[in-house]
Design a protein around this nucleic acid. Sequence first.
DNA 1: AAATAATGTTCAGTATAGTAAACAGTTAAT
DNA 2: ATTAACTGTTTACTATACTGAACATTATTT
Lengths: 182, 182
Amino acid sequence: MDSETGPRLREIRSKTGLSQRQLAKASGVANATISQIESGALNPTVGMLKKVLGGIPISLSNFFADNFSFTDQVFFSADKLLQLGEGGVSYLQVGNHLQNKSIQMMKECYQPGAHTGKHAIQHEGEECGIILSGSLEVQVGDKTKVLKAGDAYYFRSTVPHHFKNVGREACELITACSPPSF
Amino acid sequence: MDSETGPRLREIRSKTGLSQRQLAKASGVANATISQIESGALNPTVGMLKKVLGGIPISLSNFFADNFSFTDQVFFSADKLLQLGEGGVSYLQVGNHLQNKSIQMMKECYQPGAHTGKHAIQHEGEECGIILSGSLEVQVGDKTKVLKAGDAYYFRSTVPHHFKNVGREACELITACSPPSF
DNA sequence: AAATAATGTTCAGTATAGTAAACAGTTAAT
DNA sequence: ATTAACTGTTTACTATACTGAACATTATTT
């Protein structure tokens, strides 16, 4: 019936290094259920899927938004969404050769606990962003606030700033800097 | 089990002006099923929910990302995400008083068929964007391309450009202009 | 090599999701 | 007022999601 969710669950589970039984224990469902869901032999209820994803953990929204892959084609010339970083924080940049351009737009992903380093960042220009999923602690100057999906920020980059994912799930956001900072 | 999806479905269905039976017919499921899902008496399978949402139409991703509301708090001073437009195209702007700022970041939503007008747009600066959901036909100069979720664009705004939603569902994207264009 | 502990898969039983049809209530037309 | 057409809800039935236990493989331990 829905041929996507099984393979998708398998892919995500594998990526996180969990076995079916580990995930089963963490989420409180039978391991057979996970096997059957992944193989497509079963059409899970949303309650069940939510329960299973709770063991990873990942939200339903993020699970189904997984096709937010950035691997597809990109508009204009050879501008690709480049994977710049690795590890706790990843950056996907819109366009390339930004040296003489004025905007640096990125989709960023902070793993749980990931942050921008012990020293606050400071550079020319301005920056802003919109949180897509998860939660992010944003520190700008002496102000600190935890932003959730749908929240946004805007500040002058000359003020020292620092980002940290304080939630249990990955935090995705889209940001823009002007001018590009690296 | 999952107490959110019922009320959420009811809310979305009501907003679109569909009755349970209309949606049932459009999606090919029993009206009783929709009633029971909405009342919470039933925990739908994802295949079933997908089928139901197909009659609206709205994707699973968008359905669960519904908490992408922009109504929550926003970081820094009184900067709110302002609803600027109405009708076929809506704009939610990050921050305000952008006259002497350098970035204009917005979350835009194009209803099916909606576009930026019969005359192409042209202004100073550069702009870019990332498609969150749906599909958008982007016309820049003599180049035209249909972008899907995860795709992105970047171009100089002095080149005449035009956006149009050519899909059946609403298209959401996040854009950035530098400098702000209005 | 034999034993132990993992891995994912298969199977019979039971709990429940989904259907079709009848029900009850509200609005519109005649 | 009575029909007619709509709204959402309830009910008995059947199709299937989910469980627990056994199964088959592969990797690690002793």
